[in-house]
Amino acid sequence: MKKILLLLANGFESYEASVFTDVFGWNSFEGDGSVQLDSVGLHPILECTWGYKCIPHFTLDQIKLEDYDALAIPGGFEETGFYIDAFDERFLDVIRYFNKENKLISSICVAALSIAKSGVLNGRNATTYNFEGSFRRKQLQDLGTILSDKRIVQDSNIITSSSPETALDVAFMTLEQLTSTENMLNIKKRMGFKTV
């Protein structure tokens, strides 16, 4: 069985995390059941962007990174302290490990900034939150990336995206790459999404 690590920073956006838990949860019951998702944080209790608390399956010190086949990272808000964890060296080291092993790294919205901060996006194509007037795109570019205007960008093993709107698409892309196109389309249909 493959395993995906859902890496949560304090202040993460709950919707962006929930797309992974839902898509991979549906896969465990209605799909090929071949991927287990574990949520992991730096703390035993995390606060979501909108103020409620979350208990991850594990804290980072309780797991072995080599047990995981892919990494997923939701974004969050500076106002809720997201970048304190998202730029923490322990958090960045997880990203560096997955990239060094050429394992899939999927991110949503400003989680791309964590990936860039780790150094693994230097000279690679990426995107991040792109609402008009947002300084996040310049911040991403200043961290050494080649900035793209696409809503979702995949450069080798790394997926970045431009807003919460892309979240479900990123989760389905991740499922497809860890299982198969046929399995991903089955889950989309079962969840009520059009597949044409």
Rank of each mutant, 00 (worst) to 15 (best):
K3A: 09
N10K: 09
N10V: 04
S14N: 12
Y15F: 13
A17T: 07
S18R: 03
F20K: 09
D22K: 04
F24P: 00
F24D: 05
G25R: 05
S28V: 03
S28D: 14
F29Y: 15
S34W: 08
S39T: 14
S39K: 06
L42E: 06
L42R: 05
H43I: 01
I45L: 10
L46M: 09
W50N: 14
Y52L: 10
Y52I: 13
C54T: 13
D61I: 00
D61C: 00
Q62Y: 05
E66K: 14
D67P: 02
D69L: 07
A70M: 13
A70Y: 12
A72T: 10
A72P: 04
G76S: 10
G76V: 12
T80N: 11
Y83N: 08
I84N: 14
D85R: 05
R90Q: 15
L92N: 12
D93L: 07
V94T: 14
V94L: 14
L104P: 00
I105F: 07
S107P: 06
I108Q: 04
C109I: 01
V110Y: 04
V110W: 12
L113W: 00
L113R: 10
L113Y: 01
G119N: 03
G123Q: 01
N125D: 05
N125R: 08
A126T: 10
A126H: 06
N130T: 13
F131M: 12
S134K: 03
F135R: 04
R136Y: 15
K138M: 11
Q139R: 13
D142A: 15
T145G: 13
T145P: 13
T145K: 12
S148A: 05
D149V: 05
Q154V: 15
I159E: 04
S162L: 12
S163C: 09
S163L: 02
A167N: 10
L168P: 01
E176A: 05
E176R: 15
N183F: 06
G192D: 06
V196I: 07
V196L: 03
